[in-house]
Write a protein that binds this DNA or RNA. Structure first.
Lengths: 217, 217
DNA sequence: AAAAAGCTGTTGTGAATACAACGAAATGAG
DNA sequence: CTCATTTCGTTGTATTCACAACAGCTTTTT
């Protein structure tokens, strides 16, 4: 139980919340802990959902199945990450995605519907929780907007330049955390084409790079 | 002032809030009304922002200027729409976008930072406001995710099928609100190519369509 | 009704991308 | 160190797309 405190403390969702309130929170938010084995299905597309999940051990994968049956990975949620918050907050009661365990893992569920309900005790953390959630979702929103802006570019070169522009913080030199495969996946492009385009951009004197370190000229 | 009430009543942000509270709200949220003429700049990229804007008359356009100076339209906000809420909630204090008046318009500004602050009077609407905001942003989040899923498809045909799949609600026949130009813009594709691909899809027996009414076969 | 403007489909050309295959370089394990 | 694996760049071909130009049709305006 000590370990869960440590995870919670590092989670944005609990910013500014005194961890002493955890027991009260656990009571009035219907906190539940479940464990899963690797590859277990945690939430199946179509399941009813009322909870926000917090990954307290291991990691989970969120993906979507097309009509054709092919899976699209939407996100991997690492330890201390949360999932299901957008659906919970948007009032979506049936999951459009499937969540599975990437490894043996442990999930802390909170019944987020209860956040707004004034409960018996003087739970000062309610407002903090909902404010933190607002900030988390708003920031995710910004990330999504960034990705859309990048994907909106017509050519791969423009996509890359736009992506680089977000990665670097007004500094010409920067390092990205993606390898080529992941970068291509993020840009929804072919890996070899990304490599080729990066080469051309270097030939054209737009950038310099080696491995994952880039410099805008 | 009566008219503003009417606008506010139709806005999701004020769902469940008794309009009698408006005067109290106006006090403790620093409500301000400003009017603009067509093509006025309302917010310039780089401006400090602390407010959420509610369009009470006219409409505004949100766009972004690239390094090259070319503008990308991000959204048009009609009467009764809100803007700036994501930045306010994410704690972004410097606007990355420019907002201009599409027509003569009137904007009601709320200082959203004050929403969470417990204020002098017993303002019961605080929690409702922040909950509504949470729902609005979460739903916007879902829309963005949809768009990303569509843009992630490699071919235009896949993009169209994915888009159609979201538009129809389990019914084979449906009508979209975009014309071809707007549809192409939403899909980040060329208008004539969209027309051509729709033709091919009909030839291939995938869909039937005339004007903006489509049928999935 | 006539003219103008807007929307849609068609075609052709050149550019951009997907995909597959391969070799070189870097990384890791035994 | 050696071998296996992963990552990256390169090339060639087929597919897809952007762009421009144009014609047919609808809607709006005068």
């Amino acid at each position: 139980m000590k370990k869960i405190f440590d995870i919670i403390k590092t989670n944005q969702l609990f910013d500014g919340i005194n961890i002493d309130d955890y027991s009260a929170m656990s009571d009035c938010l219907g906190a539940k802990i479940k464990t899963y084995l690797k590859n277990d299905i945690i939430i199946l597309s179509g399941d009813r959902i009322d909870n926000v999940g917090i990954v307290t051990r291991g990691s989970v994968r969120i993906f979507k199945e097309d009509w054709g049956g092919n899976q699209t990975i939407l996100a991997d949620i690492p330890t201390s990450g949360i999932f299901g918050e957008v659906f919970a907050c948007a009032g979506i009661k049936v999951s459009p995605v499937t969540v599975s365990a990437c490894s043996d893992c442990e999930i802390l569920y909170l019944d987020f519907d209860k956040v707004s309900k004034p409960c018996c005790k003087s739970c000062s953390f309610h407002l903090s929780l909902i404010e933190n959630m607002l900030k988390i979702i708003a920031r995710k929103n910004l990330m999504l907007n960034q990705k859309i802006e990048i994907l909106s570019k017509r050519t791969l070169r423009e996509k890359l330049l736009c992506y680089f522009d977000y990665q670097r913080n007004n500094s010409a030199k920067f390092t990205i955390s993606f390898n080529r495969e992941q970068l291509a996946s993020y840009l929804c492009a072919n890996r070899s084409v990304v490599s080729a385009e990066l080469s051309k951009m270097q030939d054209d004197g737009l950038i310099l790079y080696s491995k994952n370190t880039f410099e805008i000229l």
